[in-house]
Design a protein around this nucleic acid. Structure first.
Lengths: 203, 203
DNA sequence: CTTGACAATCTAGCAACGATAGATTAGTAA
DNA sequence: TTACTAATCTATCGTTGCTAGATTGTCAAG
């Protein structure tokens, strides 16, 4: 019976429209403007319908965040793939990260600022989050022994740079210099590891 | 006439009680619990009185944030002062920053997460914010030529570490290792500056 | 001591929010 | 056609930030 299938397909499509509408409104007018009533109006259904898709408003934000993690993963991989060497990959990924965060502030906010119960360094972490972490780890790996710790620190630096720049607390004009600093720090970070090859002097 | 003085003193004291109550409630139950009605009840006045002190709720958050900047400045200076050398100062300050952020999450949120119109790298920046920046710059100075850029990057790294750890996205157990990484990066950052002394090799 | 004016404060209420209970409609199976 | 179930809506609750307008308190002038 294709009827049930059609229904579930329509339902999935409606859910997608909710998330898409949330994202568009958030990016245009900020997350405060994303209200249940507004979304209901947007998809031309009554408010309670939204609660048959999402437990509450935060769950809608979380759905947008998951989209964001998928997209940043793709953006970081793309940035890494078109690079001339490990160091250049690091640079490109860092620039891509900041470009992503600052060109889609609402999306980035859903991923990192707004309250959702998406966790990370735990069991039960959503695969989308792990994938983003792995995309960062990939370009860090050539330069260090303890990949996990260095990746965490790299991520934190990028997140801090994005956040402080977005909130107007550091000078946008100096973004390039700061990235250079972070990249060089990671390149040099391998230089005092006890067991190492010569990979950190590539390029 | 001391009457007007007494009145303005009482007024100032009432304003202080508002900010203090906001801070206590925020730290105990989160910022969502800090409502105008709740604060009014706390200081035993009606809601409109609060609007004779602050333009809106965000202004109350901002007032808490300013307190936070004063306190973090003191904490960072204190951490730096009890150090055995430039490198140790860097370490101590980094640890103190994270300890501050993670032990008073609501206060830190007011300073960096919640929407306020406190700006930074601009004219009209509040002196409290500049002072905090200077406290970071002080320990960074021995290791670099362009102090401003390195301080911005240092700050961003610390902020990212604090934020990702607070939101459960990086492993709390590895905090020490990450700090070590950041500190070493800054120490080494001076090593390729064109004009330099030997200060970066100080223990 | 009374009166008038001004400032301080309160009561009452608005519009908008997230969320839900219960009525109503639509769709399916007997 | 009828009975049942699922989908959807209307209407409402309690709470929020914020404000208009009434009310109280304070103090100087007469």
């Amino acid at each position: 019976m294709g009827i049930a299938e059609r229904k579930s397909r329509e339902r999935a499509e409606r859910e997608y429209r909710i998330v898409a509408a949330a994202r568009v409104i958030a990016e245009r007018e900020g997350w405060d403007a994303v209200t249940i009533r507004r979304l209901a109006e947007e998809i031309e259904y009554s408010q309670p319908v939204l609660y048959s898709h999402f437990e509450n408003r935060d769950a809608i934000v979380a759905a947008v965040a998951v989209e964001g993690f998928q997209e940043i993963t793709a953006a970081l991989r793309e940035a890494a793939s078109g690079s001339s060497g490990p160091r250049n990959a690091l640079e490109n990924v860092a620039m891509a990260y900041l470009a992503f965060a600052l060109s889609r502030p609402a999306l980035y906010a859903a991923m990192f600022i707004l309250p959702t119960d998406l966790r990370f360094a735990e069991a039960g972490t959503r695969p989308e989050l792990r994938a983003a972490f792995e995309a960062l780890a990939a370009v860090v790996t050539p330069f260090c022994v303890d990949v996990a710790v260095v990746t965490e620190t790299f991520w934190a630096a990028l997140h801090g740079l994005a956040e402080l720049e977005r909130s107007g607390r550091i000078r946008p004009s100096m973004r390039g210099e700061r990235i250079t600093l972070v990249v060089r720090a990671i390149v040099l970070s391998g230089s005092s590891s006890p067991a190492r090859g010569s990979h950190h002097s590539v390029e």
